[in-house]
Amino acid sequence: MNIFRLAGDMVHLLSFVVLVLKINATKSCRGISLKTQELYTLVFVCRYLDLFSNFISMYNTTMKIVFLGTSFAILYLMRGHKVIKVTYDREQDTFRYLFLVLPCALLALLIHNAWTPFEVVWTFSIYLEAVAILPQLVLLQRTQNIDNLTGNYVFLLGLYRGLYILNWIYRYFTEPHYIQWIVWISGIVQTILYLDFFYYYIKSWKNNVKLALPS
């Protein structure tokens, strides 16, 4: 495992920590899109179907369990926790799941590496992950006074896939036959979706002012 991959995973892990911290410390999930959280949970469930059948390393298995567990914990906090669930911006978080899930499912049926149920579901998770942030970005644009932790959470999520791109470049040059078109193109699309957010995030950080996205 190279340094970019490890850094990517750690940043991804940190994004979960920041999100749980924000929700727990403020007892509020204001500004967080439940739709995006549900889509990410679906992404992890679909991608880690081989959790118990395909052992790669202790590291991989542990991280997968942590990602799955944390995703479900966040869903519980946002939907089931008495105090927190009332802070959810239900009226603002209006993105339609089907607009994302349906095209990704169709694309996975059409473009995949092998015609097996596991491979198609896995490919679906790759496509869905690329666009799952969209409800969150739309909600951020509608939210006045984005708090720091929410801004940092989205920044870390974007940074994680960016670091994975460096990991893929590294692996391409160091491992023979390492070609992953589906993952690469999806990962690039995923990172591009954050560019606008990155621009405003860095600008607000440099000018030391509160993050606000133009609507």
Binding site: D9, E119, Y164
Partner: peptide, 10 residues
Amino acid sequence: DEEDYGKDEL
């Protein structure tokens, strides 16, 4: 082969 690669990533 191509299928197995990438499954070692998260």
